[in-house]
Design a protein around this nucleic acid. Structure first.
Length: 556
RNA sequence: UGACCUAUGGUGUAAUGGUAACACACCAGUUUUUGGUUCUGGUUUUCUAGGUUCGAGUCCUGGUAGGUCAACCA
């Protein structure tokens, strides 16, 4: 049911399949998507979402949406809502909506158990002292002077921590493992810290909060997650993940790591995205140039195109930099099949058809999408004065220019073939008007003229044209790889990443366009109606251009 | 200069010891009432040195290169 041809599996699919073959998962598998609600989701998260939900869909099972909310300082309900919206929009349904904060009592009990087992102790050292005790990757750490407190003392102290008897930073709970371990994360890592801060869900109930390492694995275990999938940088955490589950003797979830997505010509780290927003380089998290899910949505990307992209980039363990052109391919592929074609003239110049009656208007039926399975048509008014693109006319056209120049013929899309006869210029020599004559027998669909032309151009009737604003977006950065740029990446913002064209002319039917609706402006690109639109003013975002082999030819 | 992860065309990803392939990108042609689309063809690949084997991209050893780890962040 998946596909006809046997598709090769990625390494995670293989792991799952082998597990199933060995009879491990009679209940099916359970994965989870565990965002911290402290920011907006981006296309890198989409990779993780597609992976986790896709694995469960493919092999039978479910996926939990778990908010990893163990740090009350940074987390907010607003982010929870946006994350839920984005995951749903991408087309996925979670088995359960869960919060790590719902496990605070369980986690507390786990901690007491480890204290009882002499695997944890309360440390009065300061943050700086603890950092010094850690040593460095090449030199072993040293023991805290509080490392050998008795179980009873640790228990009493930890209960006092919970009871709020200590100030922030006064004490922490640490796991007692090995201060000389080659893996830094095993050198008596912190389990709990004191934070007298209101939590977005648990309010003031707690003043001690578990660290990531003490919360994540156990949360997986409580939910009986079979495959806990995260990015490569957590690889070094895995021994600790396993250590806690082992010492606690609870459900053995397993962690697997994959390489995070890097996309060319953009940035992906939360910190850099925040910088773009804070420094007003972009208009917000949903600026159509942002690689956020909300930005891509506003730009006009479809959920299917993003899912498809995630499928095509694959999953492996080596660092990668995916070319933006693959994302562009995916959205063009989708929109080519689904977007209605309409005519919009972005850089207008007037075309006057001298032999067409000035008082006449014809309503022409033009097909909406030649790629559609069922062809539908719309009515577009035609008259003797039209807007056409300025660059569809040249005074001295070169060879292979299949557009207008004096003596050249083109088909007006869905209408007539015209022959260019003349043009007008202003004092500076700029073309102000192009003149042509139409061939009455060449009407689209009933052409008996016998004339064949190489070019077809789009147009909008001057008398019927509707004004609109167009926002042409392009890649955010002028450099492919921003990973080594640091804060300097702001110097490499593409100055043409947003070009606003305040006044373009579109065909009158577009007054009825709906927010988010995808359209192809014939010969120009795919556009989507922006939420900034009002009944008086339409605003269209360019999702992506059409491929333009003429531009390449011209460049030669 | 410790531990761990990784190394296949320009970019990604396959090949599970047996003919290195698929997609994007690029180039050429085809189709086309969108210089879009379609279709066809093409250019370009196993980091390095040894070893095991009839046979190595795959297994082993060394080297090299890149990445990760020393937050009371996740």
């Amino acid at each position: 049911m998946e596909e006809l041809k046997p598709k090769s599996l990625n390494f995670l699919e293989e792991i799952v399949q082998e597990g199933i073959a060995s009879g491990k998962y009679s209940q099916g598998i359970l994965t989870r998507f565990p965002p911290e609600p402290n920011g907006y989701l981006h296309i890198g998260h989409a990779k993780s979402i597609c992976l986790n939900f896709g694995l469960a869909q493919r092999f039978g099972g479910g996926t939990n949406l778990r908010f990893d909310d163990t740090n009350p300082v940074t987390e907010e309900t607003e982010y929870v809502e946006s994350i839920k919206k984005d995951v749903s929009w991408l087309g996925f349904t979670w088995a359960n909506e869960l919060y790590t904060s719902d496990y605070f009592e369980d986690l507390y009990q786990f901690a007491e158990k480890l204290i009882t087992l002499s695997f944890a102790y309360v440390d009065d050292s300061t943050a700086a002292e603890i950092a010094a005790q850690k040593g460095t990757p090449t030199t072993p750490g040293t023991h805290s002077p509080f490392r050998n407190r008795s179980v009873e003392e640790n228990l009493a102290l930890f209960r006092d921590m919970r009871a709020g008897k200590y100030a922030d930073g006064e004490k922490v709970l640490r796991a007692k493992i090995d201060m000389a371990h080659p893996n830094m994360h095993m050198r008596d890592p912190l389990m709990y810290r004191i934070r007298h801060v209101k939590h977005h869900r648990s309010g003031d109930k707690w003043c001690i909060y578990p660290m990531y390492d003490f919360a994540h694995g156990q949360s997986d275990s409580i939910e009986e997650i079979t495959h806990s999938i995260c990015t490569l940088e957590f690889d070094v955490h895995r021994p600790l993940y396993d250590w806690f589950l082992d010492k606690l003797g609870i459900f053995p979830s397993h962690q697997y790591e994959f390489a995070r997505l890097n996309l060319s010509h953009t940035v992906m780290s939360k910190r850099k995205l925040l910088q773009l927003v804070n420094e007003k380089v972009v208009s917000g998290w949903d600026d159509p140039r942002m690689p956020t899910i909300s930005g891509l949505r506003r730009r006009g990307f479809t959920p299917a195109s993003i899912r498809n992209f995630c499928e095509r980039i694959g999953v492996a363990k080596r660092d990668n930099l995916i070319d933006l052109s693959l994302l562009e391919f995916c959205i063009r592929e989708d929109l080519n099949k689904s977007a209605d074609r309409v005519m919009a003239v972005l850089d207008p110049i007037k075309l006057v058809i001298k032999n067409y009656p000035a008082d006449k208007t014809e309503d022409l039926l033009i097909e909406n999408n030649p790629e559609a399975e069922v062809i539908t048509k719309r009515s577009v008014p035609f008259s003797n004065e039209l807007y056409i693109e300025r660059d569809d006319f040249m005074i001295d056209p070169p060879k292979k220019f299949f557009r207008l120049g004096v003596g050249l013929q083109v088909r007006l899309k869905g209408a007539y073939i015209v022959t260019c006869t003349d043009f007008k210029t202003d004092a500076a020599g700029n073309v102000t008007e192009v003149h042509a004559e139409y061939i009455p027998e060449s009407k689209s669909g009933q052409d008996t003229s016998g004339v064949s032309v190489k070019g077809t151009i789009h147009w909008v009737s001057v008398a019927h044209a509707v004004e609109a604003e167009v926002r042409n977006f392009d890649r955010l950065l002028i450099v492919e790889d921003a990973s080594e740029l640091g804060d300097d990446f702001l110097k490499f913002i593409n100055p043409e990443s947003l070009q606003i064209v305040p006044k373009v002319f579109v065909e009158p039917g577009l007054k009825a366009a709906k927010e988010g609706q995808a359209l192809q402006f014939i010969r120009k690109g795919y556009y989507s109606l922006d939420p900034d639109s009002t009944s008086e003013k339409l605003v269209f975002n360019r999702t992506v251009t059409l491929k333009d082999t003429w531009a390449k030819e011209k460049a030669k």
